[in-house]
Every structure is written in structure tokens, then in C-alpha cells.
Design a protein around this nucleic acid. Structure first.
Length: 268
DNA sequence: AACCGTCGCAACCGCAATTGC
DNA sequence: AGCAATTGCGGTTGCGACGGT
């Protein structure tokens, strides 16, 4: 017994995609879209000898319009550092805050560049190039003292004034029900435990967020991952009595942010 | 020029979550 | 409610490119 394979492994092509395959997939998706959303059946319809999952991945990570590759900006670096510190390796969530970036791209960028820069003590500026890369292997520059290594990530000063909950232009991803997390995170000067206690501005901003959520739930939209998104914002979920969402399974009483999870705990 | 080690990135794998019946 | 099919995600792998010797 065992898992049922998603496709006939013996009859699917693997490895790098050819330009012809790319063209066939792109052509099919541009004509038919992902309507019906059936990726398993798509390869056969498109005349491709590929696994449906492979087609989906190729489209999402490479062929989809608006995809950017490489050339990460310093601001993007900072956003990745900040979100990684708050939510860890939830690449799809991080990528959703970076227009044109895919989770795979962000993940690769983190593993090949940012993680090493972090270990070298650089969370901004001094962006590496391949030539200077070997410096990152000099582990004598990075020694853990007691317990996990904590890194403070500085981010811009509070900028609540720019956020209008009624303005849909704040949504980087048109399918997202939440404002960009960076809007929230900018409200904290540092991701540090002492900032978990809400001040008036944070409470005010959280009210804005709840308004949005109420708006969307009013139209029938639910999102079971909402608590983790607010965790990502760095706001202390349990400290807000209003944080209940009775139409789904979660509530504030089961979602706790521990200080050592919110502090930048890069313990590798 | 040949070899070797390292890096970056596309793609794969397997599990979890979601969806539909 | 339970099950199977499908999708989404994060970790890992494979391989071409590059740089050093």
C-alpha cells in the first residue's frame, strides 16, 4: 500500500522545461485559464506529458505574468528579514507581501543570500555578491553565546497615518483579505517583546484591521489562518478581548504569542 | 586546459490542508 | 461524518554555471 501517486510516474517527463512545453502550457492557460482549477487534468488537455503539480508549479513560479526574478531590493530584504523573524519560514505568506515574488523565489533567496547575511550580522546594507560570499563561511565571525541567537531587526518609524481601511489599493494581492503585513509591522520600531503590550496606536490600528475582517466576513469570506496573520503583525492577540471570530474555529483564547517566538529567534 | 568545489535556482517530493461528494 | 481527490506548501535535490587551483 502507500500513497496514491498524483500522476502516472512512468509516463510523465521530469526535469527542466523546454521552451515548447512552456509555450504549450502558457498558450493553454491563456486560452482557458485555470478555470475549473483542475491541474491534474490540465497536462492531458494541454498536450503535455507532465505531472499536474509540475504544471502548476511552472506556471506559478515562472510563466505567470508579472513574475520578477532576482534583483531583490533592500526594502524587500528588510521585509523578508522582518517577516521571517515574526512568522518563520512561511514563504508563501512572506511572498504575498512582495508583489511579483513567488514563495520559491523568496525561499531560494533566503537560503542562498539572506540567511548567510544574517549570520554575518548584516540585516541591511552591505549586500553581498558572489565574490564576497565566502566570508559567510567564516563561522568564527558568528558564535552563539547562551541560548538561541537573537537578532534585532530595525524597521521604519510608525506610519499608521497612511493606512485607510476603506482603501482597497492597500491590498498588494487582490485575493488577500488582509492589508499588507508590512503596513502593520511598520507600526513597531523593533520586533521586541516589550512591544507586545499594545499602545493606543496599535489598538487603533487593530480596530481598523477588525473592520476589514468584519467587512469580509459579512460577504461570506472566512479565513481560518487569520490568527497567525495577526501573529505575523507582531500584535499580541491574546491581549485583545475583541479578538474573537465565532464563525470559524478559532478565538483569541487559543492563540498565544510567546515572547521568544516574537523576538527574532534565529537559533540556527 | 582540466579538474574540483561551491553556488544559485528550477524542479521535485511528500505531507498537510482543503474541497467536493 | 467520512472518504477520496486535489491543491498548497516547505524542505530538499539535481544540475548547470562559475571560480579557484
Amino acid at each position: 500500500m502507500g500513497r496514491i501517486p498524483c500522476c502516472d510516474k512512468a509516463n510523465v517527463k521530469k526535469g527542466a522545461w523546454s521552451p515548447e512545453e512552456d509555450a504549450a502550457l502558457k498558450d493553454y492557460l491563456q486560452k482557458h485559464g485555470t478555470a475549473g482549477g483542475n491541474w491534474i487534468a490540465l497536462p492531458r488537455k494541454a498536450g503535455l506529458k507532465r505531472c499536474g503539480k509540475s504544471c502548476r508549479l511552472r506556471w506559478l513560479n515562472y510563466l505567470r505574468p508579472g513574475i520578477k526574478h532576482g534583483g531583490f531590493t533592500e526594502e524587500e530584504d528588510n521585509i523578508i528579514f522582518t517577516l521571517y523573524g515574526s512568522i518563520g519560514s512561511r514563504w508563501s505568506l512572506i511572498a504575498s507581501q512582495l508583489p511579483g515574488r513567488t514563495d520559491n523565489d523568496v525561499k531560494n533567496y533566503w537560503n542562498t543570500q539572506l540567511k548567510k547575511r544574517l549570520l554575518a550580522g548584516q540585516t541591511g546594507g552591505n549586500r553581498s555578491n558572489r565574490k564576497s560570499y565566502n566570508n559567510y563561511h567564516d563561522t568564527t565571525n558568528y558564535k552563539s553565546t547562551n541560548g538561541p541567537n537573537l537578532t534585532r531587526v530595525s524597521i521604519p518609524a510608525p506610519d499608521f497615518g497612511t493606512y485607510d481601511p476603506g482603501d482597497s489599493s492597500h491590498y498588494l494581492d487582490p485575493n488577500s483579505i488582509l492589508p499588507p503585513l508590512t503596513e502593520v509591522i511598520r507600526g513597531q520600531q523593533h520586533c521586541e517583546p516589550q512591544h507586545l503590550n499594545w499602545d493606543q496606536t496599535q489598538q487603533s490600528h487593530f480596530s481598523d484591521l477588525m473592520e476589514i475582517q468584519n467587512f469580509h466576513t459579512g460577504s461570506g469570506h472566512t479565513d481560518s489562518s487569520l490568527p497567525s496573520l495577526y501573529e505575523a503583525s507582531g500584535l499580541c492577540v491574546t491581549s485583545c478581548p475583541a479578538f474573537h471570530y465565532n464563525n470559524t474555529s478559532w478565538s483569541s483564547s487559543v492563540t498565544t504569542i510567546h515572547e521568544n517566538e516574537v523576538a527574532m529567534g534565529f537559533g540556527f
